[in-house]
Simulated scan of single mutants.
Amino acid sequence: MYTIIGKMLTFLLALSVVSIFFAFYVSRGNLKNHSFSANVAAKTLDFFYKPMLAAYMFLFKSPDKLHERMSVLKNEAHRDKFQKTEKRIIIAPHCIRHMECPARTTRHGIQCTSCGKCDYAEIKKIAEKNGYILYIVTGSSFVRHILSSEEAKTADGVLAIGCYYELNKGARELRKSRTVTYGIPLLSTGCYNMKIDMILFEKELRRLHPDVSAGSYPEDFLAEDPVHLSN
């Protein structure tokens, strides 16, 4: 009996190691544009998230690379489904705004006045041009409030902007809901004046349009009339 149990545990351990290596193989882009493999890999890392987090903290003193890989995998896994969504919103963090931001906070989040002191004026313009409603939130608790509000509760696509940790956390929290998530990472982390790659942001929004083929990638998909060049 103990021999059988030992063999089963050895088999499960070996299977776990193989699954994790497969997930990391896919996360490096080795199966690019393969949503099924990315979905399997993303679920594998979700399942082993806590032991992987502990391993990264022990080996690298930081889980940043793990969260980056998991976010990239989730984007690859969700892209096709996101293209089929009908009502989309963007949830973005307050840390992009300027320290002297004049916007006020309401139950719908921070109301951007397009003052031009930070990137939100351009983000808002690009978002509205592509059919998204922009919500700027002050924390994760505000996200739940937004998603339960009358204005956003029917949204089936949420494009999130944030650090890789927050993108991965948000996708994990919404994985059992009908909402499809997609993430755009910040270029750095902090409390104010954070940046995103505006060119990549607009290309991603255009690439997620329902009429764009699944094989189009940001580096190949050229915007016809990019907002960031028309100002």
Rank of each mutant, 00 (worst) to 15 (best):
M52W: 03
T138S: 15
Y164K: 15
F60T: 13
I123E: 03
F60L: 13
K87Y: 07
G116E: 03
R79I: 10
L45I: 11
A103P: 13
V158H: 01
H94W: 03
I133K: 14
S148T: 09
K74F: 01
E122T: 09
I96A: 11
E128D: 06
G162W: 05
E151S: 13
L66S: 12
P93N: 08
A121I: 01
V72L: 06
K61G: 09
C95K: 05
C118Y: 08
R104H: 14
A155T: 05
V137N: 00
R144P: 04
A160Q: 06
K125E: 15
T113R: 07
A54Y: 05
N130T: 04
C112N: 09
K43F: 04
H78Y: 06
M57E: 11
G109Q: 12
Y120S: 13
N130D: 14
A54H: 12
K43E: 05
A55M: 07
R144W: 07
I136N: 09
C115F: 13
I91T: 04
G131L: 09
T105L: 15
T138Q: 15
E122D: 11
D156K: 09
D156N: 11
E150G: 09
Y49F: 07
H145R: 14
K153N: 12
P102N: 00
R107G: 07
T154W: 00
C163R: 03
I89D: 10
E68S: 08
F48Q: 11
L159Y: 06
R79H: 08
K117E: 10
M70K: 10
S148V: 00
A160F: 15
D64Q: 12
T44V: 15
V143C: 11
